[in-house]
Design a protein around this nucleic acid. Sequence first.
DNA 1: TTCCGACAGTGGGGTCGCAAT
DNA 2: ATTGCGACCCCACTATCGGAA
Length: 512
Amino acid sequence: MLLTRLAQVSREVAATSARSRKTALLAELFRDADPDDVPVVIPYLAGRLPQGRLGIGWKVLGRRVPPADAPSLTVREVDERLTAIGAVSGTGSQAERARLTGELMGRATEEEQRFLVGLITGEVRQGALDAVAVEGLAQATGAPPTDVRRAVMLAGSLQTVAQALLAEGPAALEAFRLTVGRPVLPMLAHSASSVAEAVGRLAGCAVEEKLDGIRVQVHRDGGTVRLYTRTLDDITDRLPEVTSAALGLKGERFILDGEVIAFDTEGRPRSFQETAGRVGSRVDVATAARAVPVSPVFFDALSVDGRDLLDLPLTERHAELARLVPEPMRVRRTVVAGTADPAAAEGFLAETLERGHEGVVVKALDAPYSAGRRGAAWLKVKPVHTLDLVVLAAEWGHGRRTGKLSNLHLGARTADGSFAMLGKTFKGMTDELLTWQTGRLKELAVDTDGHVVTVRPELVVEIAYDGLQRSSRYPAGVTLRFARVVRYREDKRPEDADTVDTLLAAHPEALR
DNA sequence: TTCCGACAGTGGGGTCGCAAT
DNA sequence: ATTGCGACCCCACTATCGGAA
């Protein structure tokens, strides 16, 4: 199959907003694909590269290469070339990757170039990723969408399922079962603004502490243990102490879900930055492990002794977890009956925060483990802080925000009356607000480099955030975590904005 | 007819590791 | 030795479609 066909379909998919039409377009293409092309065509149309990382980004792709006049590239040839680019390593590799990329781009037409750049950067912007591709695949093969979706969750990969499905038909889905050693997409949580709201939405729930670490899925089969992240990357080699902990449990075969986190000598959680740095260390693991040892803390059991627990209610899965894992290695929790006063749950949240944790996750007791879904059965609740800050500058947006000033530079007052930048945010704005702020900020503009528009520091904006973290990038040495706009405060003047000092005083733990 | 669940899009900061400077 | 870049952790929020209520 020619790449140009994919580029055209991608353009058509992007052009329609109807999801049903997107699905139909993808299904038609999947039906036409040669079985040998399927492992490439499916991920490409889902907006992803089968190779994963290539080591090339905007720096290289930004270089203009004259496009070919006529399409000639086949998808298989593109795949081979990209595999070759990803395999380049050693001194001079960056130049070599850039050269090979330029060569490939030179063979592509303008439309194909756009498609390839989107694929490589992960920004196809066609309004259809995995979920729509799954629907299209189901439509193309006549398999029930629910079954295809489930197979993808269990395989952890759309590509694997697509290949089997197109080769053998719907019967092939049977083979995708929960298997120890093969990671499944983890279940995710929605947000709720308070414990009372979360408890009210679920009839009978467990309230569990939410640890600010790295999600981990632990597979043990006898003496073999494998550890996977949220995106199913294998991190076994980086966390030997977690492997040891899994081998110490009284079970031979299991899959557990939990969090890895570093604790200090008093048993309080260390900062997210410390835990994440440790989990990210790959080269000198022994040294990293001595400096920042981590512990697994589990909250769910997906499989025990060959028994698949995914469809069982949380209550039963947790009973299995409790049989297998001693209490100190489990997330603390309390169970709240459907009719109970939420005060008990509120108390549990307060206690959890007191212990230095991030918040709680409220989970429906009767819900199964919905792999890969962000179901309403799990609701996270974290305290939210707010500040009044001053807009120092704004950046022009991309995609659907093209032509709008989108990303705000936020400043707090300092002792000398100037403003110190604390970070940026593009979150929380409606289209209406986006339009308004573009107009208002243009009035305040004093300078621009083409992308960043500097403004007079007069506009006050209320910002919600989750906490402070250390920063080497910003002058105050700290930055806001997950900052988002709540509303503009035109009733406030810049001199009314919050100061760096009050901010630091409000978060003493961030500077420990 | 209205409501709501699921998705895609729009990017944020930090850290690590590799290659280039 | 330092800097730049890509990958991958953590993530909030809004708009939209289409099925459920």
